[in-house]
Design a protein around this nucleic acid. Sequence first.
DNA 1: AAAATAGTTGACTATTTAGTAGAATTGAGT
DNA 2: ACTCAATTCTACTAAATAGTCAACTATTTT
Lengths: 205, 205
Amino acid sequence: MGRVSDAKQKLMDAVLELIWSGSYGNTTIDQICEKAGVKKGSFYYFFDSKADLAASAFDANWQVRRAELDSIFSSTVPPLERLQKYCDFNYRFQSEIKARFGFVLGCPLFTLGAEVCTQEDALRKKIQEILEYKRKYLESAIRDADASGMIRAPDWAAKARMIVAYYEGLLTQARIQNDVSGLRDMARGIFAILGVKEKETVAAA
Amino acid sequence: MGRVSDAKQKLMDAVLELIWSGSYGNTTIDQICEKAGVKKGSFYYFFDSKADLAASAFDANWQVRRAELDSIFSSTVPPLERLQKYCDFNYRFQSEIKARFGFVLGCPLFTLGAEVCTQEDALRKKIQEILEYKRKYLESAIRDADASGMIRAPDWAAKARMIVAYYEGLLTQARIQNDVSGLRDMARGIFAILGVKEKETVAAA
DNA sequence: AAAATAGTTGACTATTTAGTAGAATTGAGT
DNA sequence: ACTCAATTCTACTAAATAGTCAACTATTTT
C-alpha cells in the first residue's frame, strides 16, 4: 500500500551511466539526483550512500546482462564459437557506445573495481562477485572445448583467469585510448592463450 | 637566486602515493598538501591544478622507472629472458607493495588512465605517452626474438599490444582482488600469446 | 648592505557537497 | 471517499573543498 515509485530505478540508471562515462569519485550525489530527476530527499529515502546505490545498481544491471551471456554462451553452441561470438559482441557493443557517447567506455565493472577497491570494501566485494560470474562463462566454454578435444587445456581455471585478464585489459586499453581498433585482436589473443592453431580459428559471426 | 625548495618534489611524491593507494577522484588538494607537509599557497605557486600536478608527477616518475626498464630489457640479455625477468620483477614488486601497504596496487598509470580518460584530456595524453614507451620495450624484445628465430611473430606491433593488454589486465585484476597469486601466470600467458612451446620456456630468475 | 629573486605562510572567500528534518502529497487498499 | 503507508519536496546545516592574496622570509646577486 501507499504510493509506488520508479525513483529507485531511475537513480540506478543514472549512477551507472555517470560512473561509466566518467568515474565514481567524480560523480556526486547531486549530479545523480539531477540526472535521475529525483530529489535528494528521495535518494536518501532509498539508499544510504553513493556506494550503496552503486552496489545496488551494478547488482540489478547484472541480472539483465546475465541473459545476454546465457544466450552467447549457450551450451548448444560449439565452445570455441561461443568465445568468438563473445568477442564479436564486445567489439560491436563498444563501437555502438563510442558512436553514442563519443567515448569508448570499456567494462564498467573493471574500471570501477580498480578505482574503488582500496576504499569501498562492500562495493569491491559486489564487483568481484559479478566478475566471478562472468569468469565462469569463459571457464565452462574452455572446459567444454577441452572435453571435446578441440584444445588441450587441463588447467581450465587458470586459462580462464588469464583470458579474463587479457579481455579486461583490452577493454580498458580501448577506453584509455578511446579507440576500438585494438578489440579486433580479442579473439586472436584468446585463441593464442588457448593454444588454438590459427587455421582452426572459427569464422567470425 | 632566491631561496631553494624541495616542495615541488614532495608534492609529486605525495600525489603519486595517494593516487596509487586510493584514487585520483578521491584525492583532494588539502590531502596532498598535508601529506607533503606543504601549504596550499605553495601548491598553487608550483602547480595550476591537481591534474597538472599529477601529470608532472607521472612524468618525473617515469624518468626514474625508465632506468629500471633499460636494465631489464637490455639488448645484452636474450629476448625471451628479458620478458621472463620483467614478469619476475613485477611479481616481486607487487608483493613488496602488498607487504608495505596491505594492498596490491597494480599499475598506477593504467588505473589512473582508466579513471580519468574521459575527463582530463591533458592527463590522459601524458599517461598514454608513457604507456607507449613501456610498450616499446616489449615490442623490441618480441622483434628480437622473432629475428633470432626463437619465435615466429612477424606482427610484433600487434603482439606487443596484446601482451600489454594482458599484462595490465593481470595487474589490475590483482589490484581488484588484492591478491598477487594470479601474477605468477604472467610469463606463461605472455609466452602462450607468443606461441612459445612450454618446454622452451626460460628458467625463472 | 641593499636589491632582486624565489619561495612560504596563514587567513580569507566562495562554492560545492553530503546529509537531515519535517511538512506536504500521493495513491493503493478498504 | 477515507485511511495511512509510501514517497516527495523544500529548506536547511555543517563540513569539505578549491582557489586567492598580500605580507613575510630566505637566498643570491650586485
